[in-house]
Nucleic acid binder design. Structure first.
Length: 202
DNA sequence: TAGGCCATCTGGTCCT
DNA sequence: AGGACCAGATGGCCTA
C-alpha cells in the first residue's frame, strides 16, 4: 500500500521537516524551466520519523545529501561559466562539461607548450586563426579523449582547428601520455597571458 | 515511445 | 555517533 499524501506543497516546511518522497511528488517548474522537486509531506512517515531516531537521522541524511549534490552542481555551473561560450541553448551536460574542461585544459597546455618550444610566431598565428568556440557545435567540443582527438581517430573532434596545427608538429598525446603541466607554461602565462585570454575568451 | 539526463532517496562504507 | 561520500534505484521531463 502506497503512502497517503496529505498536504499540499505550499504547506511544506523545510526539507528537514518533511519526509522527502520526490518520486510521488508532482514536478514543479521554476524560473528558466528548471525542475523543482518539493518533497511532499507524508503524515504517517513524518510521525514515524519524529518518533524514531532512525527516521529522523534518515531525513537529516537526505537533506545533507541534497545539499551536497546542490554544491556539486554549483561547482559544475561555475566550471561551465569559465569555459568558452557556447550558443545559449547548448548547456553542457555534466559529463560533457567535465570532458570539455579536460580537453580545454589540455588544449591550452599544448598552446603554451608550442610557445615554449620556440614557436612563438607560429603560436601567435595559430592563435589568431582559431575560430570562435561559439561557432563550433557543442558536440564537437566534447570528446572522451583528447589523445584520440589529437590523433584524429575520434569522430567527434573538439578544437578541430587547433588540433590540426598541433598534429603538424610532434604530438605527445599520440604516445599516450597524459597532458602534464609544463614548467615553461607559467613563464608564458605571464608573458602572453593577455593575448591568450583574448584568444580564448569571448 | 525509447533513451538520455537529471534530482532525489537510500543503504553501505569510511572517516573523524 | 554523526557526517561525507558513493553507487544503485526510481521516477519525471525532454527530445529525436
Amino acid at each position: 500500500m502506497s503512502p497517503k499524501l496529505i498536504c499540499a506543497t505550499t504547506e511544506l516546511r523545510t526539507s528537514v521537516d518533511a519526509v522527502a518522497l520526490s518520486r510521488f511528488s508532482p514536478a514543479l517548474k521554476g524560473a528558466g524551466g528548471k525542475l523543482l522537486r518539493k518533497p511532499l509531506l507524508v503524515v504517517g512517515e513524518e510521525v514515524r520519523a519524529v518518533k524514531h531516531p532512525r527516521g529522523r537521522r534518515r531525513m537529516k541524511a537526505n537533506d545533507r545529501e541534497r545539499h551536497r549534490m546542490h554544491n556539486l552542481n554549483s561547482a559544475l555551473d561555475a566550471l561551465r561559466s569559465i569555459l568558452p561560450a557556447l550558443p545559449e541553448d547548448a548547456k553542457l551536460t555534466k559529463i560533457e562539461t567535465l570532458r570539455f574542461a579536460r580537453n580545454y585544459i589540455w588544449a591550452l597546455t599544448e598552446t603554451l607548450r608550442m610557445a615554449a618550444d620556440g614557436h612563438t610566431q607560429e603560436f601567435m598565428s595559430v592563435a589568431s586563426e582559431l575560430n570562435s568556440p561559439a561557432s563550433v557545435l557543442s558536440a564537437e567540443w566534447d570528446s572522451a579523449s583528447p589523445a584520440e582527438s589529437a590523433c584524429g581517430t575520434s569522430a567527434d573532434l573538439h578544437l578541430r582547428n587547433f588540433h590540426t596545427h598541433v598534429n603538424e608538429r610532434s604530438c605527445s598525446m599520440c604516445a599516450g601520455d597524459e597532458p602534464t603541466p609544463h614548467p615553461v607554461t607559467f613563464y608564458f602565462t605571464s608573458l602572453c597571458g593577455e593575448q591568450l585570454r583574448n584568444t580564448w575568451h569571448y
